[in-house]
Design a protein around this nucleic acid. Structure first.
Lengths: 349, 349
DNA sequence: TTCTCAAGCTGTAACGTTACAACTAGTCGA
DNA sequence: TCGACTAGTTGTAACGTTACAGCTTGAGAA
């Protein structure tokens, strides 16, 4: 509609969206004044400010994001970088809802930027930073020496990591206390009289593998027990792999009688493997697992569950990135969620 | 960095992002020519076009989204409007991955716009349309007379619905053939010798409730059977509600011996209810359910499963919105996924 | 030679916003 | 009376892009 002058109607008869210009016209002020008045700049007169804000509210003024972004570089976007191979258990949706919750009542939008683990994990990060398509990034599957974290720190780009690193540089993160989980899981098994403990851990590349393993190992040591190793098996292996490997292990003599499982999804496979070997939960063997979906509780009542709240994680991550964008120091933007309740619980009375 | 002239470095020493202007300078051409050359406009000379495109590729030119958006109104954004109360089973992540897949290699970004079912479902729709913050919208939980669809049609705003409507107006959608599911579920139960069938349906407000109910009813009629009604129970009820109500029903004499369940999440609760009443799957009773997560198959091997592919749904929805944005007619943008395999399958050999 | 036309290229303005430098009017002190 | 100052307001330019209306050049027709 170039050169059609200051019509306030578009072709289809919708009222044109109000701009600073139209508010300036209505109030008889200059565009600059209106802009400043709306953001409570100090050099605007009290009455003018109120008048402008009243009119703006009346006509439903919403700043044009493209205009702001072009002029200031501020995108009002947070980019969630996701691994699309992930997520057997569907915790991603909870994280998304959590983030949405965290950015509600702010001007931020959430953009989902996917990548495939099998391709280059740096690719989406570089894209966002180079094109400036977001003000901040949320990453997950954090590793101890994460190249994405390094890159983002080097470029001074605001971000928050789901999980910690081990690189000697502070950065915003939210994490679940997997060390505490590992410890309390073992303690619960010990309390049930189990002695031969195995851990089905997260993949070794991820930082929280170490946390969980430490909690697990510490508690074992305290109880004077040895770990029964499952080799390189991890919750990232396919469901069928986990089931078959566990079935094989469980059939041996001296097999574990207590399992700690790092994810709800893998717990299904783990239990299936145990049962394939003829073992019954709560009889020959016990399992403690983190649960993300509520469904696990219906799967086997004898499973010992520790809740991990991914909505909370999403909310915390949102707050952390926004803090980083606002320039807060990293040390203020680090949170760790402790496992709820203190004791794993089963749904068997 | 206003008024600093044509420096090609930013303060932090990063090379400035190339713009049309910088490419124009490098090639010695005008900005307009470069713009036209990059989009293969016909009035540009063959050699010039190639030269410009070469340089652009070399320097890694990416059009500035804010610039395009401000000038043309094109946002290159697709908005997925999600109900944050939803999703016990976590299928949302699969839809998101599917959409991501569908928009890969296009210039579209995916923005997640959440709302709460308990608040106004129109709110996010109006927001997107009024602020023009996306080129197209994907909605789910479609109802037969969906006010969102009406609004979007009236405003000529491109969208795709996950699920059909019944409003006598064609629009883009993707749907799962729930009628076929209902029918084949009953047939599978009949084949197992079950006679007293109950349906645990989607909430009555959603369109696919009717589809599933029709398939269910038709197959019942063909087999000369009557439905055992579960009253107003639906898969949107809480897990505990479903379990308790099913347990109560199952304890009656003449209780159903065959159940059709509309969602994987609810199946957990349904089975829990049956077992609480002392019934065993595959013995006194059989259950056919749609599965979204792969996990259901490990829950009870005797469950009869019909796979619904939500990644596919996401991909189709993405194609449908993009088609709508491109101005294709609605009739070309309607797809229905048929249940795979033809027969519900259990993991019991 | 002049005119017309097409091909190829260019400059200007505008989208909505904000940084910046300026301007106006009024107040106050000397 | 003047100058200095402050509070409040303003216009201009620019962010990167594209629509549009030109411009230039050379070829071909008359």
């Amino acid at each position: 509609m170039d050169g059609q002058g200051d019509s306030d109607e578009t072709r289809r008869g919708e009222p044109a969206r109000p701009t600073l210009k139209s508010i300036a016209f209505m109030t008889g002020l200059g565009v600059t004044t209106v802009s400043r008045a709306l953001k409570d700049a100090p050099e605007i007169g009290e009455e003018t400010r109120r008048r402008v804000q009243l009119v703006a509210r009346q006509v439903g003024y919403r700043p044009n994001r493209a205009g702001v972004r072009l002029r200031t570089g501020k995108t009002n976007v947070i980019s969630l970088v996701l691994d699309t191979e992930d997520d057997v258990t569907g915790f991603v949706s909870d994280i998304i809802y959590g983030i949405s919750d965290g950015i509600a009542d702010t001007s931020y939008h959430l953009v989902v930027t996917p990548y495939s683990r099998r391709k280059d994990p740096m690719e989406p990060i570089r894209y966002v930073v180079e094109t400036g398509s977001a003000d901040g990034i949320i990453i997950s599957r954090t590793t101890p020496n994460d190249p994405r974290v390094l890159y983002l720190l080097e470029h001074g780009f605001p971000f928050a990591a789901h999980g910690r690193t081990n690189m000697g540089q502070a950065h915003p993160f939210h994490d679940f206390d997997n060390e505490a989980f590992g410890r309390m899981a073992v303690e619960a098994l010990v309390a049930k009289g189990r002695r031969r403990m195995a851990l089905l851990p997260p993949p070794p590349a991820l930082t929280y593998h170490r946390h969980m393993r430490k909690g697990f190992a510490d508690a074992l040591a305290e109880a004077g027990l040895q770990e029964y190793s499952l080799g390189d098996l991890s919750i990232d292996d396919s469901i069928d792999t986990v089931r078959d490997r566990i079935a094989a292990v469980a059939a041996r003599s001296g097999a574990p009688d207590g399992y700690v499982c790092a994810s709800g999804g893998a717990a299904f496979a783990l239990v299936a493997g145990l049962e394939a070997a003829g073992l019954a939960l709560g009889r020959e063997v016990d399992v403690v697992t983190k649960q993300s979906s509520k469904l696990l509780r219906w799967f086997r009542p004898d499973l010992q569950l520790v809740e991990e709240d991914f909505r909370l994680a999403g909310r915390q991550l949102a707050l952390a990135v926004m803090g980083a964008i606002a320039g807060k120091s990293a040390s203020e933007l680090q949170t760790i969620a402790v496992p709820a309740g203190g004791k794993p619980s089963s749904s068997r009375p």
